[in-house]
Nucleic acid binder design. Structure first.
Lengths: 340, 340
DNA sequence: TATTAACACGAAACCGTTTTCGTAACTTTT
DNA sequence: AAAAGTTACGAAAACGGTTTCGTGTTAATA
């Protein structure tokens, strides 16, 4: 077991000073060619690599970014994460990930743990609890300390920082119009409780879509489901009690559950009822018929978020750039669960 | 913007030495009560937190672990990761994640990047390419440098380290027996190319299951599908050309694709054909009928892997413990795609 | 009263780098 | 031959902590 070699080791072995070794390896012209060659050869032979931690301490830059997401077993977040990792890596950054598990406390604790030097900035999607509490002091404190933050998807207007969001409103409206074009008039929405701002946006987009098409909104056609429960009964009753021609679901689980129940009730998709979901995930791609859905382009979102953050990190000390909000354009993927 | 406060700042402000501050905050009894109180109050007021990087440099311990997985948009890996994160976090460790993207080079580069001080150990599942190449020199070198590694799921016998695996062989055999109990004799296997050792183990377990039940293996009933392709035609032909009563699939995507195709061909699941998949993921839970499947208990696997690694890290310097291989027992979840 | 012990603190080394500055030994210029 | 400029390197500070050891001041003991 040969432990990692340091500058000091090289210096001692070659009988020069540490500074000389450092300079030689950085190809400084302060050092003579012969000495440089000797040192480089030796370093190469022993596979010298500078210690990241020492560099971080010296440079006050870790080249690490912290990512805090509510859940990892979730298609959308993993695609975003993939985008983050991809871009970050290409820029020489590593990614430290923390899962808030939808908990405010875990979000706070994790971020504080990382904030003491471990990372240069955060990319964050708010936990459900944080959104419910509407308490963002932890974020404000970090920003105060000069640690840049980029929010994505589950954001808040309460804090000033870079953000990346989806055009939820517009795409929901577009989905409704798509239903209308195929002849539907009784268009339902299945959504989650409203402290998720994305759900709220989608709902408003849905309402706007109805308005644009001169349809009247009907509260009975909006089903709000609780989080993390078995919703089979609620959905079944919903379709038994209401005449529905099309349904927009704010996520793909709802969509695929709906489809199962609708089929079970004896209707056919899309002939009797059309369905559009959100998230072009594994479920949408493998159901039968395949689900028409809103592709959120998570990977692109992640790349954008990472770019915003790294730009901000690397331009620090510069004059403060104004904060930006990037909008990712969702696209409607038309598959078997709608009439095209 | 108030930048982070350091020991030096406190020392200067309170007109004591840095050592005194450090000791006071660690409640050393070398320091008088009054001085300690003064310093603690000051530190608390300014929300002093020691700099992680400085601590890492001093202690030569980062309290970070590196996780390298082939893919993040993948239910099994995310559950394992969740287990890792959970345990690691509870022990005060952070998790740096790298995605190898099934590429040998990315695996090597990422690990080397982290190995220069950024982490105290690795948890790794081999990339497809690495398994194909059968080249593990990068792992050997890291082990040589004294960096502990824990392999999970996609492992290799070529290197000596702690490992966590699933009892793929036994559970596949058990699945076959379950089919037999419900009356099936013509039992098929749908698998991936064999350089995935888990697939190989599952296949061997399948064969063993047949043998145990006095059934003859039939090569025609084994369908090997290429990676990342649209396999619809291959699967369709397979079921058109072969009489099959039950099928074991090595992952849930194959299983749900199978089910769709089987139903499309006019058979019913499970009456005509039973299906068991691997991975109790979102697909299995939301298909209709719901898929009977092998639960891999990824979270448990992740926790075990993290525990093995952290134990190893924290017992370093101690006499070398022998390497361990933990086996996670998969369980068969019987749902609608089999006759129970 | 002289010696020893306890107390409370500071100086300095160390972790592994980078970088500024100083300087001895040549070389070139006048 | 003296002054100035190069060359090639080393010493030391800095990043932010921890920890060992030394020491001056008191208090306890002989």
């Amino acid at each position: 077991m040969k432990s990692k070699i340091t500058l000091k080791d090289i210096a001692k072995e070659l009988d020069v000073s540490i500074s000389t070794v450092s300079k030689a390896l950085k190809n400084s012209k302060e050092i003579s060619k012969e000495t440089k060659d000797r040192i480089k050869a030796f370093a190469k032979f022993y596979n010298y690599r500078p210690n990241n931690i020492a560099l971080s301490l010296k440079n006050r830059r870790t080249k690490n970014i912290g990512v805090v997401i509510p859940d990892i077993v979730h298609h959308f977040f993993t695609t975003v994460f993939r985008g983050i990792e991809k871009y970050a890596n290409s820029m020489g950054y590593n990614v430290i990930i923390c899962i808030s598990d939808e908990s405010f406390d875990k979000e706070v604790i994790n971020m504080e743990m990382l904030a003491n030097g471990s990372i240069d900035g955060f990319i964050l999607s708010l936990s459900a609890e944080t959104q419910k509490k509407n308490d963002f002091t932890h974020l404000k404190e970090l920003l105060d300390q000069g640690i840049p933050i980029v929010l994505f998807d589950r954001i808040t207007q309460e804090i000033a920082c870079d953000k990346v969001i989806l055009n939820d409103f517009e795409i929901a409206s577009e989905a409704v119009s798509h239903f209308v074009l195929s002849g539907a008039k009784k268009i339902a929405l299945i959504t989650t409780e409203r402290y998720f701002n994305v759900s709220e946006n989608r709902k408003n987009g849905y309402l706007e879509g109805l308005k644009l098409n001169n349809l009247k909104a009907d509260d009975n056609l909006i089903l709000t489901l609780p989080h993390n429960k078995d919703n089979t009964d609620l959905i079944t009753k919903f379709f038994q009690n209401n005449e529905v021609e099309a349904v927009l679901c704010v996520n793909e689980i709802f969509a695929v559950q709906c489809m199962g129940i609708i089929q079970h009730l004896g209707y056919t998709v899309p002939d009797d009822i059309s369905i559009i979901g959100f998230t072009d995930g594994i479920l949408s791609q493998n159901s039968s018929p395949k689900l028409s859905t809103v592709a959120q382009h998570g990977e692109k979102m992640g790349e954008k978020a990472a770019k915003l953050l790294i730009d901000r990190i690397e331009s620090a000390e510069m004059e403060e750039e104004p904060f930006r909000t990037e909008v990712i354009n969702a696209t409607l993927i038309k598959r078997g669960s709608t009439i095209n």
